[in-house]
Amino acid sequence: MDLYLPIAELSVNVFVFLAMGAAVGFLSGMFGVGGGFLITPLLIFSGIPSAVAVGTGAAQTVASSVSGAIAQYRRNNVDVKMGFLLLMGGIVGAIIGVQVVKLLRQIGQFDLFISLAYVFFLGSIGTLMMIESLNAVRRSFSANQATTAIRRSHHNWIHGLPLKMRFHRSRLYISAIPPVMIGAFVGLLGAIMGVGGGFIMVPAMIYLLRMRTGLVIGTSLFQILFVTAATTVLQTTQNYNVDIVLALILMVGGVIGAQFGAVAGEKLKGEQLRFLLAGLVILVCLRMGWDLVVMPTELFSISGITGGSH
């Protein structure tokens, strides 16, 4: 069944994109990740203009983070004050990011930029995860279960910053600058790459802000929900690149796939999952990088004045 997408201005096969949404939903359910970093490249590979892929990715992330955020809030796993600071930073980052998207589309470098961003972030994070999971697998084989004490030095450079605030929920007394900066960076990435940004924010909150893991998950979901919602609105007003029809198809496929993915994920061990996820991340990275380094069959491209690449 073909459906004409109003914003992408293409006729696509609904089942192909339902399947794509379901596949990514399966993987995100299995690995417990947002899936934005998978759906956006897949959309680009399948011929959706990259700007539309990014805008639609943001809308889809809203759908996949909303119920998680509410559940975490109910379990009192959200540090609202911290979340609010992250959110403020995130919205500033998103505003800048959307403008960056607009500018890059005008000068015709958006495709390049998004490929570089993906290659870089997926490459580095995939590699680190791969190393970590291999080490974990090796350790579990050698049966050395001695857990090293958590290094949690209470004083790092973060504590030297001004504007200190007390975060009761997280039992922290730190400067407001790092949360805002982290939020802004993640918001910027979200707008440019069409991702939620949990893969950056979660480690940053754990190791820079020294927050408890449980709180980190809840608070980051809270931030991701609102920032991706804000990004969606910003993208529609600035770049007109959110395709509701496409987003809806992906969401439907995604939520169904996620159910089966979660079941499959329970059958695998944590380090196996992380190893597989790392492999997947690296594959996407390589696929993106391949297009950058291999001589394209067609050196020319045409586009309208604001973008919408071909």
């Binding site: 417990g32 990740v33 996949s64 955020a69 857990t147 004490a149 958590i150 949690r152 996620a258």
Partner: peptide, 17 residues
Amino acid sequence: LNESVRVWWTEVRASEV
């Protein structure tokens, strides 16, 4: 799904990460 995120991260030993 979100729960599995939590599990995912708590399983990661802090020293490793």
